[in-house]
Nucleic acid binder design. Structure first.
Length: 897
RNA sequence: GGGCGUUUGGCGCAGUGGGAGCGCGCUUCCUUCACACGGAAGAGGUCACUGGUUCAAACCCAGUAACGCCCACCA
């Protein structure tokens, strides 16, 4: 056996194991053996990664959690389905394809819409499977045989149905609004696709001369952060109650707009905050949402001075052709020249940026399609309020409520070519237009040719249908049965930044189209993965970590376990690659424990069927009791999605209980031969087998590779489909007596080892040990310790070991006082009396302090009157124990002299 | 301007009312036949601060500070 490696090599086992699982069809929803039982199904839809995407740490975390959930459900025998696929990601993909074109010196208009869309499909075919392959590398057990894509033909039908129905219900409309325009992507963006970043800018104070002076006043001063937009000004607004301006308002003062020589009115509007700036606001209805509203109220002209690239157009007079940045400089310079620049202040303000390309967005008046949200939001709010959808951690529901209750209409049209084209058709001849599920050949009214709307839908419009469109809803013949069986899904796991963009909209659309069914019952908002210093990982910082590199270095199991271990309910996690060494060590520990078990099975004679434990000794009973507790604990932490606690419980059981103690006990039992050896072999196999099952969802590869070689006797061919250990079935092994016996054993062994270390004695130096027991538990404890004598002698290395209630203290011995017992360790001729006195005095002082505190408590009338009776009882007991121990220490000190 | 999160030994984190735990690191010892990616024994904390509630507070409440995140049309 010595030729076995001491560490396991993940790279050698991962690929072949995954291939075997896939070949066996374990991840398919209809794989044999699952659907035939009556357990409720367990379904997860993966948040579809972008086709252009590569795996980042957020994906690694998110998909680890989903795989842990789905693997456990699969082992529990539930019909499981983890739906996988990718999102066409309109803007992101289009940008990539445009970049590629640009490198060839082309833009999309050179090749036209049809060819461009074809190139997007080519891109998808070439790169669309990268992230799917990476998910497999992580060990994710998705239903890869049935991969979905948000541009699948069937998916397109779902989009059409939703659009047409909402359109005919009056929930979708077209309107002229100020929208967020990205001049680089040349498309509209929804409000939540804009990222506001605080920037240090300026507040320019510009003088606007009056056409006719009013009294002393010949000009107004307006403050603006965007002086270039003055080219499109069509008014100046002040608060009607602002005393500085009432006279001007009364006189209906007119302003001659500098540079443009346009006469514009002064209007009174309550929107204006008299305390900010000068209290006078220039109004640019075409380039600011507030100004747009003011303009509507006062019938001001909308003058759009920018083209779609945010360059000044012909309405910008002599500034036409300038970029917005150049226009700003030129306008300010012109004002300065004319003596109309009053002054400039530093000013920090939030500036919107495109969430895809980070370009500063331009508020721009244009015709766009919108979804009326209020009506859709109401039932979605109710679904979370009444608990049909739960957020985990729960606090995220507040974020959801706040957004939903202040929801605004959703701009869904995008001036892109890659995406689902808006299914609205126009007749150029008679003016007919309508939204239709099927493309019409000609105008149904006049028979003339029709034209489809040029815009495509926001990608999130299609993503919102993901939980049910992936079932083939609404027209696939199988969909009704499948939706009936698997819908709603159980869990939706995602990052907090798409609660609005995606989660909320899925809830709304599902309630709207699937008979008030929610799309999922639990939303898991996982923490954001930060770098080790607490910074967000980003390309620009260059601090991102590639999960595939982690897998190459540590293996997928270690990465998964390490990530899950850090999911503790906080909103961020700091990720330090070096800390994964801890979990690599754990994986090695598991591997070596398994190696130990294997090495001792040469003469193992399994009974038919799955291995059953044979609790022969207290140690056997103890490890089974601990295993039962662990299983129950995991069940509890699973239902609350506390992955960190699960990882910790598994780690502690396997390392500190199974390896540190049980395997050490087992060594003695194995050496004994005969029946004792047989029993021990069975217990080792059973506990290891059960532990591997419990570990499998987090560490699928390592556990499977061990399990396949373990003589567990299970007829199941793979751990992937082996039965999950049931806490109720193991509850019979709970055993207080065995736990007490091992507690005593560990106390004694620890005392001897500690003494040996203090006296710097070699580990193998045998020592004579005697135990004196006292108190109510003395008789039972004595029996338990006697039963463990062989173990104690071997593990503590004793030359002599005796246990008794009347046991006398040997002369020249170290005394260790513990609850219910005194441990005497004979050190003839070597005992350091002074050191022992000091040690015991320290022990005494510490116990004295505790006892005093408890005594005070019990003397406190408030405590006695109000504390719970079990707390009072416990306090009394603790004090009694301390008093006994203090008495014993005093006696020991007297004996030491 | 609102809202949320975090603050516990050098570092990373558990711990939702009965006087603090884990891992790493650190100190000492051990290459004993599963594992030095290991074993054994140790050291190390007035639980950010202030006040309150309570017989009892790391934990509940109020406020303060620092850091981080989200939302928001003050030009």
């Amino acid at each position: 056996m010595s030729d076995l490696p001491k560490t396991f090599e993940p790279a050698d086992i991962e690929e072949p194991l995954f291939a075997a699982w896939a070949d066996a069809g374990y991840f398919r929803r209809d794989s044999a053996g699952f659907a035939e039982n009556s357990l409720s199904p367990y379904t997860i839809v993966i948040p579809p990664p972008n086709v252009t995407g590569v795996l980042h740490m957020g994906h690694a975390l998110n998909n680890s959690l989903q795989d842990i959930l789905i693997r456990r459900a699969r082992m529990q025998g539930r019909p499981t389905r983890w739906i996988v696929g990718t999102d066409h990601a309109g803007i992101a993909t289009q940008n990539r394809v445009e970049q590629k074109l640009a490198s060839e010196g082309l833009d999309r208009f050179d090749i036209g819409r049809e060819v461009f869309v074809q190139k997007c499909w080519d891109w998808r075919r070439q790169y669309g499977s990268t992230i799917i392959g990476q998910l497999k590398g992580m060990g994710c057990s998705c239903d890869f045989d049935d991969e979905k894509f948000t541009m699948d033909p069937g998916y397109a039908l779902a989009i059409r149905k939703v659009f047409v129905q909402w359109y005919h219900q009056g929930l979708i409309y077209r309107g002229l609004r100020i929208i967020n325009w990205c001049p680089r992507c040349t498309t509209a963006l929804a409000d939540d696709e804009v990222e506001h970043i605080d920037e240090c800018g300026h507040l320019w104070y510009l003088r606007y001369p009056l056409v006719e002076p009013v009294g002393e006043t010949s000009y107004l001063v307006v403050a603006t952060t965007r002086p270039e937009t003055m080219l499109g000004d069509s008014g100046v607004a002040v608060n009607p109650t602002d005393e500085r301006y009432v006279a001007l308002l009364a006189a209906e003062a007119k302003i001659r707009l500098p540079l443009m020589d346009r006469v514009i009115p002064l209007v009174g509007d309550n929107y204006v905050d008299a305390s900010f700036g000068t209290g006078a606001v220039k109004v640019t209805p075409a380039h600011d949402p507030n100004d747009f509203e003011i303009g509507q109220r006062h019938s001001l002209e909308q003058i759009n001075i920018f083209n779609d690239k945010a360059e000044v157009n012909e309405l910008g007079g002599r500034f036409a052709g300038l970029s917005r940045e150049a226009a700003r400089e030129a306008v300010v310079a012109a004002f300065e020249e004319l003596g109309l620049l009053d002054h400039v202040e530093e000013h920090e303000h939030a500036v919107g940026h495109c969430y895809r390309c980070n370009t500063t967005v331009e508020p721009w008046a244009s015709e766009q399609w919108f979804v009326r949200m209020q009506q859709l939001a109401a039932p979605a709010i109710a679904a979370v309020r009444d608990g049909r959808v739960r957020f985990n951690p729960q606090r995220w529901e507040n974020v959801y409520f706040h957004w939903m209750e202040n929801i605004r209409d959703w701009c869904i049209s995008r001036q892109l070519w890659w995406g689902h084209r808006i299914p609205v058709f126009y007749c150029a001849s008679c003016g007919w237009h309508d939204a239709l599920e099927d493309n019409p050949d000609r105008c149904p009214k006049c028979g003339a040719a029709v034209r489809q709307d040029d815009d495509v839908l926001d990608t999130w419009f299609s993503s919102q249908l993901w939980p049910f469109a992936t079932y083939g809803w609404p027209y696939d013949p199988k969909q009704a049965a499948e939706l009936d069986a698997y819908y709603p899904t159980q869990v939706l796991s995602t990052a907090r930044d798409i609660i609005f963009l995606w989660v909320a909209r899925m809830i709304m659309s599902s309630l709207s189209f699937l008979d008030d069914a929610v799309p999922f019952t639990d939303v898991i908002i996982h923490p954001t993965v930060l770098d080790k210093s607490g910074n967000i990982m980003s390309k620009s910082r260059g601090n991102g970590i590639d999960p595939m590199e982690l897998i190459a270095e540590f293996g997928a199991d270690v990465m998964r376990f390490g990530l899950a271990a850090q999911v503790t309910g906080s909103q961020d996690m700091r990720f330090d690659k070096d800390k994964l060494a801890v979990y690599r060590n754990f994986a090695t520990k598991i591997f070596n424990a398994a190696r130990f078990v294997q090495m001792n099975l040469d003469d193992y004679r399994p009974l038919p069927g799955r291995v059953q434990p044979l609790p022969a000794t207290l140690a056997d009973r103890w490890i089974l009791a601990r295993l039962a507790r662990l299983t129950a604990q995991l069940e509890q932490d699973q239902s609350s999605f506390n992955f960190g606690a699960q990882a910790h419980a598994l780690y502690a059981f396997f390392w500190n209980e199974f390896c540190d103690w049980y395997i050490e006990f087992a060594k003695g039992q194995l050496a004994g031969g005969g029946n004792e050896r047989q029993a021990s072999q069975r217990n080792l196999v059973f506990v290891l087998d059960t532990a591997l099952r419990l570990l499998h969802p987090m560490m699928p590869f390592l556990t499977e590779s061990i399990w396949l070689q373990l003589p567990h006797g299970d007829e199941r061919p793979s751990l992937v489909v082996a039965h999950w250990p049931n806490a109720a079935e193991l509850a019979g092994y709970l055993d207080d007596e065995a736990e007490r016996s091992i507690e005593l054993t560990c106390t004694v062994v620890g005392a001897v080892r500690s003494t040996r270390a203090r006296y710097r004695l070699a580990a193998r130096t045998p020592l004579a040990v005697s135990i004196r027991l006292h108190g109510d538990t003395a008789a039972v404890d004595a029996a338990l310790l006697k039963a463990q004598a062989e173990q104690v002698v071997s593990m503590a290395v004793c030359s002599d070991f005796s246990v008794g209630q009347e046991c006398a203290r040997p002369p020249q011995s170290v005394a260790v006082i513990a609850e219910g017992l005194e441990i005497f360790i004979k050190l003839e001729g070597q005992l350091d009396f002074e050191a022992e006195r000091q040690r015991l005095k320290k022990e005494m002082a510490s116990r004295r302090g505790d006892a005093d505190r408890l005594g005070k408590k019990l003397a406190n009338q408030g405590f006695m009157a109000k504390a719970a009776s079990d707390v009072i009882e416990k306090t009394k007991n603790d004090l009694a124990v301390l008093e006994v121990e203090l008495k014993r220490i005093t006696a020991e000190l007297e004996e030491l002299g």
